[in-house]
Each structure stands twice: as structure tokens, then as C-alpha cells.
């Protein structure tokens, strides 16, 4: 009864949600449909799209016919996975330390984590060029990973911190009281309870890394191009819109498939942890 009363009435619900709904329809759903459709069009004489109707499956045929695209997809997923993993490894101790520090200091530490966003992203990547250049590490896969981890670390730290901060310290005391040493306490209590934080952090890192083109373009070598670069190239340099669109759709499909799998796995394996997340 009380739940029904706190929910906004039908009309006000519409008034509140209409503007964002319209915005998303116009600037997200419609463009997405245009891209999806463009993948099935013919390339125009001078690039772009051929006049309507000009439908064909050429883009997909081309995409699936060349093993190089598969290779770039595989490399992109590998880079995204590696970046996510490294972000977890680096962000976990940081988030844990912030969550364990005195309450009045936590906000300052969180602010420090997001402080780099105050300066322009490209400027920060250029800074890495100056740092990696003299060490002869520029234009290598290593430089790409460094840039990716650097750019996405805060997106892992924040959800992890929010999760770890909510852990009840009594649980660790209980584990210790029942005979668990520090190592066991971490792996049996802290870590499993932090999985929701790790999952949301991973989603925030993995998906943007898949589509990222600036970092590989600025820090990577010619062999380091990822899907993001490929898509950008089709639209801006090659002017092969159908191929670019097809690549985009493939990428979206892969991400959705992965997200679906992760959600399914989380539902099965995370029972109980939602109580603290």
C-alpha cells in the first residue's frame, strides 16, 4: 500500500520522463537505426552512400571474407580484456585504501582520483607521448595498454570504492573470530562481496576501451589499430560508410552478447552479494 502511494501518478510520470525519452529517441535510437540501415546500402561513387534504394550485403560480405577484420576484432577484445584486468589489479588496492581511510579524508581522496578529468583527455595522452618517447616505448602495444589503463582507471576505482565502503567491518571481525587469517578473510569475505563492484567497473572500462581510437592512434604503432580506428577510418578516410556501419553493428552485437552473458553469469553466481551492493 505504502509503495503504491509513493509512486508518482500516471500523468506526472509521463511529464517527468518525456524529455529524456524524446532526447534518446531523436539522438540515440534514430541515429542507431540509420547506422544499422547504412550497413546494408551500397557505397556511393564518391564515397558515402549510393542514392536510395541501392541495397546490398557487400559490406558484410567483405567484412566476413577477410581474416584481417577478425584479427582486429580479436586484438581489440584482447586489449580490452587486458586493460580491464590491469585496471582491477591497480584499482583494487587503491579503492580499498580509500574505503578504509578515516571518513573525513575519503572525499578528498576520491576527488584526487577524478582530478585528472579536469584537464583535457588528449592533453593527458600527449603527456604520455613525452613520457614514453625518451624511454623508446612509444608506438608499441605496451604504450597502448599503458594509455588505456591510465585513461580508464578512475572508472574502476569509483564503483569498487563505492562497493568496498559499504562492507560491514563486523563481517571481517566475525571471520577473524572464527579462525580466518588476513589472506583468507580477503578471499572468502572481502573479495566475493566486492564482485558487484568489480563487474560494474569492468563494464565501465571494457566497453569504452573496445571503441577507443585516440589512444592507439597516438600511442600505438601501425600494427596496433583496433576496431575503433578501423571504424573511424571507414567514415573519415576511406569514406566507405556501409563498411564502417557494418563494423559498428558487429561491435555493438559483440558487446551486447558479452553483456548478456555477464548478466546471466552474475545472476547465477552472485547470489547473496546484492544484499551489500
Amino acid at each position: 500500500m505504502s509503495a503504491a502511494r509513493t509512486q508518482p501518478a500516471g500523468l506526472s510520470k509521463w511529464v517527468v520522463t518525456l524529455p529524456p525519452t524524446i532526447f534518446l529517441l531523436v539522438f540515440f535510437l534514430v541515429p542507431a537505426l540509420i547506422v544499422a540501415l547504412a550497413g546494408f546500402r551500397e557505397t556511393g561513387e564518391f564515397g558515402g552512400l549510393a542514392p536510395w534504394p541501392g541495397l546490398s550485403l557487400d559490406a558484410y560480405r567483405f567484412l566476413l571474407g577477410d581474416v584481417i577484420y577478425l584479427e582486429i576484432f580479436a586484438r581489440s577484445f584482447l586489449v580490452a580484456a587486458l586493460t580491464t584486468l590491469l585496471c582491477i589489479v591497480f584499482a583494487y588496492p587503491l579503492a580499498w585504501l580509500i574505503a578504509r581511510s578515516p571518513k573525513q579524508r575519503r572525499d578528498v581522496l576520491v576527488l584526487l582520483v577524478i582530478l585528472p578529468f579536469a584537464s583535457n583527455f588528449l592533453v593527458r595522452i600527449y603527456a604520455w607521448i613525452m613520457l614514453l618517447g625518451p624511454a623508446n616505448l612509444l608506438y608499441t602495444p605496451f604504450a597502448v595498454i599503458v594509455g588505456m589503463v591510465y585513461a580508464h582507471l578512475p572508472f574502476m576505482v569509483l564503483p569498487l570504492y563505492i562497493n568496498l565502503e559499504k562492507h560491514d567491518p563486523a563481517l571481517l571481525e566475525a571471520a577473524q573470530d572464527l579462525g580466518a587469517n588476513a589472506w583468507t578473510r580477503f578471499w572468502r569475505v572481502t573479495f566475493p562481496l566486492s564482485l558487484p563492484g568489480i563487474f560494474s567497473g569492468s563494464a565501465l572500462v571494457f566497453i569504452p576501451v573496445l571503441g577507443m581510437f585516440a589512444v592507439p592512434e597516438l600511442l600505438g604503432g601501425t600494427g596496433d589499430i583496433l576496431i575503433g580506428n578501423l571504424i573511424k577510418e571507414q567514415f573519415l578516410e576511406n569514406r566507405d560508410w556501409p563498411l564502417g556501419s557494418a563494423l559498428s553493428i558487429m561491435l555493438t552485437a559483440c558487446v551486447l552478447l558479452l553483456a548478456g552473458l555477464a548478466a546471466w553469469a552474475a545472476k547465477r553466481g552472485l547470489h547473496g552479494t546484492e544484499a551489500v551492493s
Binding site: D168, A170, L171, E173, A174, A175, Q176, D177, L178, G179, A180, N181, R188, V189, P192, L193, L270, H271, G272, T273, A275, V276
Partner: peptide, 30 residues
């Protein structure tokens, strides 16, 4: 002697049950 090495257990005011373990898992822990 650290708490984990003392042959005594505590029942906490908040119970401090492990939320990610079943009842059997909680009881099996010690």
C-alpha cells in the same frame, strides 16, 4: 594470541552473517 588463534567464538550483536554464503556455508566456515 590473535583473535583467529583463540579457541573461542563470538556471537555479534548484528549477527555478522556472511551475506554471500548460505546458512550451511556460514555454519561450515569455522
Amino acid at each position: 594470541v590473535p583473535p583467529e588463534k583463540r579457541p573461542l567464538h563470538t556471537v555479534f550483536q548484528s549477527y555478522a552473517l556472511f551475506p554471500h554464503m548460505t546458512v550451511a556455508g556460514n555454519i561450515a566456515f569455522p
